[in-house]
Design a protein around this nucleic acid. Structure first.
Lengths: 346, 346
DNA sequence: TTGTACGCGTTATCAA
DNA sequence: TTGATAACGCGTACAA
């Protein structure tokens, strides 16, 4: 390979044509409809491309085509493995459709999210998948108004104005707390926040619903609010929990996600509490680190990869199918019981 | 906002010009040199842009400019939070330079890596940052030959043919094992593999070097090979470790990364071993989950974000500075001692 | 089977 | 201060 770029610029089809002694159209044919080119010339052109180190210019193709060959996923928190797993699911689907996937991370900040979306619209991506900071923010709503295919991930659409995929968070909250009641717990903490996050709200709602249905007094389901869904917030919730007067101290905690649960678990162990005997813990998401915790964590599983794959399927349908209708794909969460809730009380 | 796209196509500068009753060049001036346009016309143009929902077409800009306004990072394992933190560091630097960052994930597969690179070259990204599966693979070497600025992350360049950033892995291995010797351990396991991964090789090398310097018999530093640097491989290493005859069983393990260490920790706890009393554990990377483990993990810290920021700085220099010279940025790792090695033996 | 000419949206240059 | 025009690299009618 020579790789001799003419004065710094990457070789174009024009250069290839000149090198191969054919016309520009022929080179294009070799690239896009090799069948209509004679074997001899095709090989000559291909050799020229290899010699020059020719690479198609995606921008030019895209400009010509009017749209790019890429999908994008804007995730809420790159530090949470849950979103990475969702992204993996999206990527497999994107690969099957021979599309690139741009993964962006808003880190829970609305301004960063808006900036990412701006860029993606400028890139003319085929579709946007997003787990939004706030589903009602104007920059989110505008995506749909622009006519860009988009799907909300891990959050259901309220008005059906677009596709979405999520698990039933209310149900998730129900099965988590039902499991704890089943294990004999009569005083339980819900750890999670802020309540501006829809997922947190609904998981709490499910927890409360099932708690009431079992006839338990509302004041025995204590809400320990957190400022974010992170390990360190879980740790701090643990401190507050330990500070409660003994008669009010819960024997179990249901955390709004696994990161909180891991933080809580860590603090509990540090504070000398035995898990699950002194404190049982249930998480949410079932990320790989949940099973890998020193006391493996009971968790409410979300089909992470499948959420991603389905979301990708939906954007692609919206992007290509003129008869597309918006769809709210709801998945059923499942409890995965592990050691952190392993004992039946009394 | 009307958002009335003419027959499906997004509005272009041409449409804006027509709507505002000005020429195309004026619209361009409003976008790129607003100072040279009179306030009146500028406002008219801006209103037209808002009315039409005009968004610059990045492909066209790029085609014109000859290069994109994006950087790319191809990471080795998206499931390892270490790489996410590196990516965050890169992103901050990219943001400062007003560049987009495309994050790709090879998942340790060379074919996926090659595919990603292909696409990135087609996109004409300004530079590529990569933690390669195999630094000597042809598709890696070709990046440099193509004249595309690129930096190897978490892996030093052997021949200096390109920039790279990494910590001193040999030193990292040394301080980990020195810490264990210091804590009184006389039989230690190195958990990690495959040895085709340079980082693993060098960490082992450092471990062996310091072991020898302290005059310890080589056979008391046992290598427990793994097939990957994952939690589940750590767990399986734990099983093998437990299976060793008591006289040969190490009192401490140094793991090639934190994921292995977490898996090992989990198995140890399950098997009823007390950490650190029965088995002390040192990890590598100091990901957030290390501190968050139920027995907080001693680990060799890498300056993850700073690795990323430095790498970004280097590609940008290569991309913009004609006098650029390749640089191997080496960082010094630091031991972060936590509970998993908390006790001095005997 | 191959070659020619045009358009995609943006920017920069030059002329008015 | 504004307007006309050429160029970027590619794909595709259409003509030869």
């Amino acid at each position: 390979m020579t790789l001799q770029p003419r004065n710094g610029r990457a070789p174009s089809v024009k250069d290839v044509a000149a090198a191969a002694g054919v016309s520009l159209g022929t080179v294009s044919n070799v690239l896009n409809r090799p069948a209509v080119v004679s074997t001899a010339t095709r090989e000559r052109v291909e050799r020229a491309m290899a010699d020059l180190g020719f690479v198609r210019n995606e921008s030019a193709r895209q400009l010509r085509a009017g749209t790019s060959r890429a999908l994008a996923y804007v995730m809420l928190d790159g530090g949470n493995p849950f979103f990475h797993d969702v992204a993996e699911g999206i990527e497999t689907a994107a690969e099957d459709a021979d599309l690139s996937l741009f993964v962006c991370n808003s880190s829970g900040r609305s301004d960063r999210e808006a900036k990412h979306i701006d860029r993606l619209v400028q890139q003319r991506v085929q579709g946007i998948l997003i787990t939004p900071v706030d589903p009602d923010a104007s920059h989110i709503v505008e995506i749909g108004q622009r006519g860009i295919p988009f799907v909300m991930v891990d959050r259901l659409s309220r008005d059906g104005g677009h596709c979405s995929v999520a698990v039933d968070d209310v149900l998730g909250g129900r099965i988590a707390v039902e499991h704890l009641i089943d294990r004999g717990h009569r005083r339980v903490a819900f750890v999670g926040g802020p309540l501006s996050v829809g997922q947190v709200r609904e998981r709490l709602q499910g927890a409360r619903a099932v708690w009431a249905e079992f006839g338990m007094p509302a004041e025995d389901l204590i809400h320990l609010p957190t400022e974010a869904l992170t390990v360190s917030e879980g740790r701090s919730a643990g401190e507050r929990l330990a500070g409660l007067p003994t008669r009010r101290r819960p024997t179990a905690a249901f955390c709004a996600n696994d990161l909180l649960a891991l933080g809580l678990l860590q603090h509990a162990v540090t504070a000398g509490l035995r898990v699950p005997d002194d404190l049982a813990i249930v998480g949410f998401d079932d990320i790989d680190f949940a099973a890998a915790a020193a006391v493996p964590l009971t968790s409410v599983r979300q089909p992470r990869q499948e959420l991603g794959r389905t979301a990708a399927r939906l954007v692609l349908d919206e992007a290509t199918n003129p008869d597309h209708t918006h769809e709210q794909a709801t998945f059923v969460p499942a409890l995965v019981a592990r050691a952190s809730t392993g004992t039946v009380r009394r």
